[in-house]
Design a protein around this nucleic acid. Sequence first.
DNA 1: CGAGGAATTGAGATCCCTCAAGAACAGTGG
DNA 2: CCACTGTTCTTGAGGGATCTCAATTCCTCG
Lengths: 229, 229
Amino acid sequence: MNLACSTCPVNETAACAVLTTDERDAMAAAGRTRVLKRGEMLFAAGDEDAACATLLTGALKVSAVDADGNEQILALVHPAGFIGELFAPFAHHDVVALTESRLCTFARRDIERAIEDYPALARALLRRSQADLLATRTLLELTGHASAEARLAALLHDFAAAASDSSCHLAQRFDLPLTRGEIANMLGLTIETVSRKLGELEDTGAIQREGKRGIIIRNAELLQDISGR
Amino acid sequence: MNLACSTCPVNETAACAVLTTDERDAMAAAGRTRVLKRGEMLFAAGDEDAACATLLTGALKVSAVDADGNEQILALVHPAGFIGELFAPFAHHDVVALTESRLCTFARRDIERAIEDYPALARALLRRSQADLLATRTLLELTGHASAEARLAALLHDFAAAASDSSCHLAQRFDLPLTRGEIANMLGLTIETVSRKLGELEDTGAIQREGKRGIIIRNAELLQDISGR
DNA sequence: CGAGGAATTGAGATCCCTCAAGAACAGTGG
DNA sequence: CCACTGTTCTTGAGGGATCTCAATTCCTCG
């Protein structure tokens, strides 16, 4: 299927936004859209020639599985995010859909050629890569020293910020994109601890739970305070 | 001081290696070498217009300081590594020399112009950025789930690999580039735990300590085994 | 030789994990 | 609409790994 960049929901914000219309059309001819259902995998660790992709809608997780079969979530990908290890001979991590997701995928060699042909694209991907690096380091900072409660508070804060339209304030209410188990894997905790600490955050009045996935921010300042930032 | 790229110890491996001689000379005219002693800072979190640099010799750490004043090491930089957040308005982390280090520094605007002028440089930096991203995620994976002993074993393994000339086998003996406190900060542990676990690794016969900094690999397989990889 | 920092070692406290059971929920089929 | 079933989440009790606090030893450097 061919792509219609003009109706793409992230045509202003994704890496391809820096291309001219003609250049973008040329890339579109090489790309394909793909839809993943929750739990479906885009590629697995070890895959050779793993595709690259821009996420249009939905959410993905990047995760590693250690020797004991424990999963560790290393990053979340939001719309306009770019996925793909451009210079590695094989993928180092799994990439799985958290919700139904639409992607715009490209074969590795097509992306590699595009980077050669369109310097602006290389710069855009560099920018995105540095942003990803910063996000990963922020997560590393969090899981390094902070208490379970602080980690959870920080994650909720981030989710509330991500769920808001404007980038400067928090959403008052949102649904967790992750299960308890996934939150635990991301923060280096266990399911039980996540559940308990969510209860404690509710007791202190920072948040309120609404069903299994819903979170209402009751006291954003307190939440930020607990997160230690 | 002007630069002599022809005698640069990393002129084959650093990002600038992709440039032609002429291009490199043009960049050299804009750059400056700088020497940092152990503990000296290249730039601090919050600095605007922080310089960018390629590390020639020595070693650096990238670290964050949280609200309580605790340091967390997010990454180590080895020779040929590139330092600098190109698209951020200010630096997010501190960068400090671990040993006496020589750098080749550039003003932000000079690097930005070079990226525009030399597409190959942008691609080289993209490659480096993705490698940094992978390294950070590997560290995240480690600090997420592993026990103190496994973290330490993995770090020692990495250091042994980095200290070796050939990339495929380990150095038999090396000096730790970090103090106990820095190791602790990097792995999300305390000084005491690092010290204790080092003792235990010695008891099991995996390593042998030699003075305060020296480490001898006694049983690389066992070490790898303990690290869980 | 002395002083300061860095590392080791010990004892007790704490936070989080493990194991285990029960409750809430979603999907399925009757 | 309701039982049925599996999954996810919650809650509890106990144990273990790591942190905290404190004292001592080991280097390094003046």
